[in-house]
């Protein structure tokens, strides 16, 4: 059943995203072609510059659309009249949530990769070669004390957190929509309202934490903490990145649970 859900989910999202991904790659190729004709005349510099601008816009648009399409698909397939079909399939709510989020994240990552590939294509040739040479030079000539193994691990941990963070972004919108659908009228407005409340809470929480931290920073304890971090930079680094990963996993877990419970107990199809 899950395989079949995936098949149909990919088909539905692919239908929307494939043109976007092609457009992102296309603009990269186009930019490269434009740069091919580069000369030092002002005209070409402007064109070259604008096509790079367009490339950046399209790259981010691709990511933006991946997020938008993923969120709209969740609402439309589960909570509009299509929901009458989706929720009467011999499928559990958990399976629905899993398949939707995994598909949405996959296309989001695809959009990110397309953007990266597009950039590489646009820069291919001399600029890219120069860039790679510079980066390898810096990497090779890092100060002796820096343990490159740890840096690599930091990068891996960071990438993993970002991966889970994408899930948590989608699940955040899913949760807002799922809470919103419980309302009798104006379900979408309710979802937007929930988002604002969440945003507000996050803002208040961050402000409070920042204030507390600034106060803490003025205490003598702060110096000892700073010393400890300086002496154990790798340990603290790993704790930080792995901690971030765990926090994101926790957030996704909570959001998933909220959606799952509401769907099972408080489904409100129009």
């Amino acid at each position: 059943m899950v395989k079949k859900l995936f098949k149909h989910e990919f088909a539905a999202m692919g239908r929307l995203m494939l043109p976007v991904l092609c457009a992102v790659l296309g603009v990269g190729i186009l930019t490269r072609i434009i740069l091919f004709f580069e000369s030092d005349t002002i005209g070409f510099n402007i064109i070259g510059g604008s096509s790079f601008l367009m490339l950046f816009v399209v790259m981010f648009a691709g990511l933006f659309l991946a997020m938008v399409f993923g969120v709209i698909r969740y609402y439309k397939n589960l909570f509009s009249t299509e929901g009458y079909l989706s929720f009467t399939l011999p499928v559990t709510p958990a399976q629905h949530l899993m398949v939707k989020s995994v598909t949405a994240v996959t296309f989001y990552i695809a959009a990110a990769l397309a953007a990266l590939v597009s950039l590489v294509i646009a820069l291919s040739g001399d600029p890219l070669v120069e860039g790679v040479k510079a980066a390898s030079y810096i990497w090779a000539h890092l100060p002796e004390e820096i343990n490159k193994v740890h840096l690599v691990f930091f990068a891996i941990e960071f990438a993993m957190s970002m991966f889970v963070a994408v899930f948590s972004s989608f699940f955040l919108y899913y949760t807002c929509i799922t809470i919103g659908q419980m309302a009798k009228k104006n379900r979408i407005m309710m979802a937007v309202g929930v988002y604002f409340i969440y945003y507000l809470i996050v803002q208040v929480f961050s402000t409070v934490m920042s204030v507390l931290f600034s106060v803490f920073a003025l205490t003598p304890l702060m110096e000892r903490v700073a010393e400890f971090i300086a002496d154990n930079i790798y340990l603290c680094g790993h704790t930080f990145f792995i901690g971030m990963l765990l926090v994101y996993i926790l957030i996704v877990g909570v959001e998933f649970l909220v959606c799952h419970t509401i769907i099972r107990k408080k489904l409100n199809l129009e």
Partner: peptide, 12 residues
């Protein structure tokens, strides 16, 4: 649901 065929009153 494997045994139930449902026709809701609006088009799905």
């Amino acid at each position: 649901r494997v045994n139930v065929a449902y026709l809701p009153d609006n088009s799905y």
